[in-house]
Design a protein around this nucleic acid. Structure first.
Lengths: 224, 224
DNA sequence: AGCGAAATAGCACGATCGTTCAGTTAATTC
DNA sequence: GAATTAACTGAACGATCGTGCTATTTCGCT
């Protein structure tokens, strides 16, 4: 590997760190230079502009996110197991509060929701991309027969993402140690509400009887 | 009202507008001055520092939030009706995408989750305050008999907040017009999952049969 | 080893930030 | 209406931002 490439990836590494703490908008060329003990212009030269740097960081973050959350889930068999692993890997990232790294997707959502431009476009595209991935998994769970035929995968993902966001909020801002457990509980309840049970006839009675994880007194994680 | 007081509230008004668009951290004294056509130092003089201004803005935002979301709900009778109105008033705020005003609590959550200091403390305190208010409403819904005796109000609020965050995300960043409808659907399903039904015996069978809003093919709001 | 290219440093620029302070205008009080 | 106080202006400061330009160092290849 050429020298330029390895400093470039070192820059990306530091930039990812900073962006996780202060958001993409809080990412600064000077801060990267200081951390890497090199000049601002030295850092700058590797990307044509700050915006290009931010987009590169966003892409790199997305790449690692997919590698970390989605790829491992592909080893699981199609359907609910895969979906559950995805969620669980995701929660693992939220749980690491000690090393303060907020999710770039979460901070970026409020940084760019009113700020049009290339970064916002890239952010939307990147989020869409792994949302499609999750949607595919949810649809598989349906076609494989793990979920009822009348389940709505998009609605499911909407609510799952809500659990993630709420956990992120409570764990990181409110420092609530129960946040992750609550998200897991909600996830379990959510799945149960659209799971097809072997003893229930799916087609004849759409209002069959599932079990509520909410009602099971859990003081422990659903995936302990 | 003295002259100073009315410019002060004019400053707060502009500041609220800006903070809604660019977050509390994106709030700038120069921007306020420009919008009000007065000098930076003139704006500055009304608050001892930028930080004090930010805190004042946060308090004012919280005040309006409570007036807008919680106070009207107190006219409803205790229990689920009150909780439902709270949620509905809240969703109304999310829905107004045309005038770009993101929620300060949402943007602030990722701005300050890794940034200790007075603003973060105030933000946590303010959020705690209306969370307590909602928790009270949920507890009333339980004691009044609208919710099952084994329902977990804190878990309920955690998931409701998730729906709000997800709606905020999808409506504002992703520009998904279905976002609010999805949140309403999730809310209805959530309530149904812990609602006490008149025909079901609450104590004898914790796994009684509720109805799932998820399964009702809604192309319309649950509170149309 | 030496040469060309790539990588990095150093410096300066205009802008904008929060903040200070002396001076001026405006509002309030008597 | 004059005196007093409150409100506001304007200029300046030091910091930091992204960026452009020109040296200088370092790498990679023959």
């Amino acid at each position: 590997m050429k020298k330029g490439d390895q400093t470039r990836s070192a820059i990306l590494g530091s930039a990812l760190d900073i962006a996780s703490r202060h958001g993409l908008e809080g990412l600064t060329i000077g801060a990267i230079a200081e951390r890497l003990e090199m000049s601002k212009s030295g850092v700058f030269a590797h990307f044509g502009s700050r915006e290009d740097l931010q987009i590169a960081v966003l892409r790199e973050y997305a790449k690692r996110f997919v590698n970390d959350v989605f790829f491992p889930a592909l080893k699981e068999k199609r359907g609910l197991p895969r979906l559950e692993v995805m969620f669980e890997r995701w929660m693992d990232r939220v749980q690491r509060v000690d090393i303060p790294n907020g999710c770039v997707f979460v901070s970026g959502a409020s940084e760019y929701d009113d700020r049009p431009g290339p970064i916002r476009d890239e952010m939307v595209a990147v989020i869409r991309s792994w949302q499609r991935e999750m949607l595919k998994a949810a649809n598989q769970a349906k076609s494989v027969g793990h979920l009822r035929s009348d389940a709505d995968p998009e609605q499911l993902l909407f609510e799952v993402y809500g659990l993630l966001l709420s956990a992120h909020h409570d764990a990181r801002l409110m420092r609530d140690p129960l946040a992750v457990a609550r998200a897991r509980r909600g996830f379990a309840r959510l799945l149960d509400s659209c799971r097809k049970h072997p003893d229930a006839d799916d087609s004849s009675d759409a209002r069959a009887v599932p079990r509520y994880a909410t009602l099971i007194p859990t003081n422990q994680s659903a995936f302990s």
